[in-house]
Design a protein around this nucleic acid. Sequence first.
DNA 1: GCTTGACTCTGTAGCTATTACGGACTTTAC
DNA 2: GTAAAGTCCGTAATAGCTACAGAGTCAAGC
Lengths: 144, 144
Amino acid sequence: MHMKISEAAAASGCHLETIRYYERVGLMPPPARTASGYRAYRPAEVERLRFISRGRELGFSLEEIRSLLRLEDDSKMSCGDVDAIARTHLADIHLRIDELQRMAMELERVIAQCAGGERECCTILHALRDTGIVSKRDVARCRV
Amino acid sequence: MHMKISEAAAASGCHLETIRYYERVGLMPPPARTASGYRAYRPAEVERLRFISRGRELGFSLEEIRSLLRLEDDSKMSCGDVDAIARTHLADIHLRIDELQRMAMELERVIAQCAGGERECCTILHALRDTGIVSKRDVARCRV
DNA sequence: GCTTGACTCTGTAGCTATTACGGACTTTAC
DNA sequence: GTAAAGTCCGTAATAGCTACAGAGTCAAGC
């Protein structure tokens, strides 16, 4: 019935250490413990872990997932709120895609120049030294 | 001639504190100092900052940029190495784009279901709880 | 000469979302 | 009975910054 943490990890798709982390940051409630102190997860808690895991797969931040979980726990209807979070997140993903595509295009351009050019002069290094086509520099958020 | 750190920041596109960070991690050499200890950047160093900034805009990691700078500093030709770094990085960007597009498609799917469905049942939460495919059983379970 | 405000200095801590470690304990398998 | 595997906790590391605090410095105005 109850699952140990490694079983919950396997069942939910969350890494074992990540589950402890989620507990530490309050995304997961402290689970019951066995007599010897091992965590014992009930099915509902494993489901909650899966909820988080799927949210992460869709790129939601932990804070977004925290909000979604609150709405989920709240029996009052809040479909509009959920929808708003999802749409905001989707817009953010599209921004990141655009940014990465901009990078890819620019990179393809300088690589193509380099491959076609003479070997004594690296156009890629030139591009980094000289050209400044790129505008926005919120690169950190572009990591998947 | 020499620039103070805020001027170098403005000229290079790097945030002021980021410049100090780059120095700390060895991406920038320790600059000359004024009598009172202020950093004084020579044009070549500002250029190096701009090089880093452009590399970041193209999504290169600091370690990749470190390699590119080594190749740049090395007067021996190494266009092939530069090209390899750039191509590897480009492939990585394409992977990230694919991943984000996968997320976006999936998210669009669940959002569309939610928007098209009745207001009393949030299919987005369903999607997160279950396998990503909302079944009729799930809808039936939905409370008013 | 003095004050005010803007700038810079160092060192450290915070951020996101994990992952990895060390050393102690428990459970399981043979 | 012993050895291997699992679990515990707390802490530190990762990338790439950003944000302080508290001290010192510089230029302008009066």
